[in-house]
Amino acid sequence: MHHLFIVMVIGGAIIWALTIGVLAYAGRTRPKPMSVRGASRLIVWGGVAFPVIVLFLLLSYAVWLMPQVRPWLPGAMDGTAEIEVTGEQFWWRILYLDQAGKPAFETANELHLPVGRRTTFRLKAADVIHSFWIPALGGKMDMIPGRDNTLSLEPTKAGIYRGPCAEFCGTSHALMAFSVVVMEEADYLAWRAARTQAPVAPQKTSGQELFFRHGCAACHAIAGTPAIGRIGPDLTAVGERQTLAAGTLSNTPDSMIRFIRDPASIKPGVKMPAFGMLPDGDIEAISAWLGGLK
């Protein structure tokens, strides 16, 4: 795209200079009468043939540059990652796909992307219309139930960015966001490999035992444990995420405890029920265990 910009700017500058040059020439010289034949020729070549050819060349160049339309060129689609993101009230289900387009692993509310590589997003919605938007990386795209929309982005700078939901989707629409961690390619590959490998069972603590006893696993999945619930966000490595509750709280033990105790007071309309009836000690133990998942 960088080349497109340069070519268009230089091309536009040349045409501008030519036009202004002709204008200045016409204004300064004494007009001499032109033969009908000469004038017609000037109109046909300068007014028809020249713009038609220039526009044809520029159009061809712009179309030729689009990476998706010429994937047969070597390198055009190399290393392209594909990620399926589903908008749900009020969080993001994120499914990384392998090279063959099969599901590799799932996560939620946080994207990890390699810098300098184009990633294609397949965007879906589970309930109502949401909209996927990472303002720092590109335009937004609606997520519509029953439809697959496609968006492709190429981050050029490592860092952490925020992506909000950009289509009103319910009471907690303003509290539906995700973090985007753009990493150097080696870091990204290491992160991805760690996720794709056979999951290591987390250390057994009373928190884990309480997580299962109080039924958290009915809705949440954690790789390496028997928790395979798919109603709520996947909690694998939730301790390393930037935020909790889809970009709403900073990832601290206190936030985790607050959210488990009464999610609706933080995110109105959230599907997760309140667990305020549990003893404080149990909630703290569960939070400590979840916070340690990395």
Binding site: L55, L59, V63, Q68, V69, P71
Partner: peptide, 18 residues
């Protein structure tokens, strides 16, 4: 000219966008 312009992507396009 318009038909020619409309046909430009036919020359360069290689696959459906998935």
């Amino acid at each position: 000219v318009a038909v020619l312009y409309v046909s430009v992507p036919l020359l360069f396009i290689g696959a459906c966008q998935s």
